[in-house]
C-alpha cells in the first residue's frame, strides 16, 4: 500500500461522510433509547400539567392548546439538546469530526438532522393526540403539525449553536436554556399564530411560509455557526 500518494484520490466524498454521520448518530440514539424516550415522555408530562394547573374546562383549554403544545415542544427540545455533542465531546469523536477532510458544516448538518429525527419527530407525531386532549378544534390539527414540522428544526439548529458553544463546560443544562429559549421566540410566535389563524378561519399559509423561510435561513446559516462554535470550543 502506498501511504503517501494518491490519498486525495481515495478521499471519500462528502456525501458518504454525511450519510455515515447521520447513520451513526441514529444508531447511537436507537441503542441508547433514552435519547428518544426522555424528550417524548417529558413532552407528554408537561402538557398534561396544564389542565391541572390552569383549568380542566375545555373552553379554556381550547384557547391555550396551541401555545401549551408549542411551549412544551420547545422545552422538550431544550432538554434533548443536552445529549447532542456531549458524548462525542467526551469520547473524542468531535475531534475526529473536526479533523475530517469533509466540510464540517455538512457533518454538523447531518448531526442536526439525526437529532431532530429522534428527538423532534416523535414529539410532533404524538402532538395531535395531546391537541385532542387539550380540546384543540379539529381545524387546527393540520396547521399545528405542519408548524411544528417547520419550526422545531429551526429551534434545534439554533440550539445546536448554543450546545456547540457550551460543549466544553461541565454543567451546562441551564445556560443552554438561557441562551436558546429567547432565540426561539420568533418560531414560537409564528407557530402559534399559524394555529390561531386557522382556528379563526383564516389561512395559515402566510405564517407557515414565514416558518419555512426561517427554516431555510437556519439550515443555511446555523450549521456554519455551529461549526465555528465547535472549533472555538475545542480550541
Amino acid at each position: 500500500m502506498n501511504r503517501t500518494g494518491n490519498s486525495a484520490m481515495n478521499r471519500a466524498n462528502a456525501g458518504a461522510a454525511f450519510r455515515a454521520t447521520l447513520k451513526r448518530d441514529l444508531l447511537i440514539s436507537v441503542k441508547r433509547r433514552n435519547d428518544i424516550l426522555n424528550p417524548f415522555m417529558f413532552f407528554i408530562i408537561v402538557v398534561s400539567l396544564f389542565p391541572i394547573g390552569i383549568s380542566p374546562e375545555s373552553a379554556m383549554l381550547r384557547q391555550i392548546a396551541a401555545g401549551v403544545i408549542w411551549i412544551a415542544v420547545l422545552l422538550a427540545s431544550m432538554l434533548s439538546m443536552d445529549s447532542l455533542y456531549r458524548s462525542d465531546y467526551e469520547d473524542g469523536s468531535l475531534e475526529q469530526l473536526l479533523l475530517s477532510s469533509q466540510p464540517l458544516y455538512l457533518l454538523v448538518f447531518a448531526k442536526n438532522i439525526a437529532h431532530w429525527l429522534v428527538s423532534g419527530l416523535p414529539v410532533i407525531l404524538v402532538s395531535p393526540l395531546l391537541a385532542y386532549m387539550l380540546a384543540l378544534p379539529a381545524e387546527g390539527y393540520l396547521t399545528l403539525v405542519l408548524s411544528l414540522l417547520l419550526g422545531t428544526p429551526v429551534v434545534g439548529m439554533i440550539g445546536a449553536i448554543a450546545v456547540a458553544l457550551t460543549v466544553g463546560l461541565g454543567s451546562r443544562g441551564l445556560i443552554l436554556a438561557v441562551i436558546t429559549v429567547p432565540m426561539s421566540v420568533p418560531v414560537l410566535i409564528f407557530g402559534t399564530l399559524a394555529v390561531q389563524n386557522s382556528l379563526a378561519g383564516g389561512s395559515p399559509l402566510g405564517y407557515l411560509a414565514l416558518l419555512g423561510a426561517m427554516l431555510a435561513a437556519a439550515a443555511s446559516l446555523a450549521p456554519v455557526a455551529t461549526a465555528a462554535a465547535l472549533r472555538i470550543s475545542l480550541n
Binding site: 481515495n10 458518504a16 455515515a20 451513526r24 444508531l27 447511537i28 458524548s87 473524542g92 475531534e95 475526529q96
Partner: peptide, 29 residues
C-alpha cells in the same frame, strides 16, 4: 492526517465495527 488523541473517539454504545465504519468514512472509504 490521522490523529489519535487521549480521547479515543470510540463510542461506548457502538460496536468496534460501527465505530470504525464512521471514523473511516470521515476520511477514506
Amino acid at each position: 492526517l490521522l490523529y489519535i488523541g487521549h480521547r479515543l473517539a470510540v463510542n461506548h454504545v457502538l460496536t468496534p465495527l460501527e465505530n470504525l465504519r464512521w471514523s473511516c468514512r470521515l476520511h477514506d472509504p
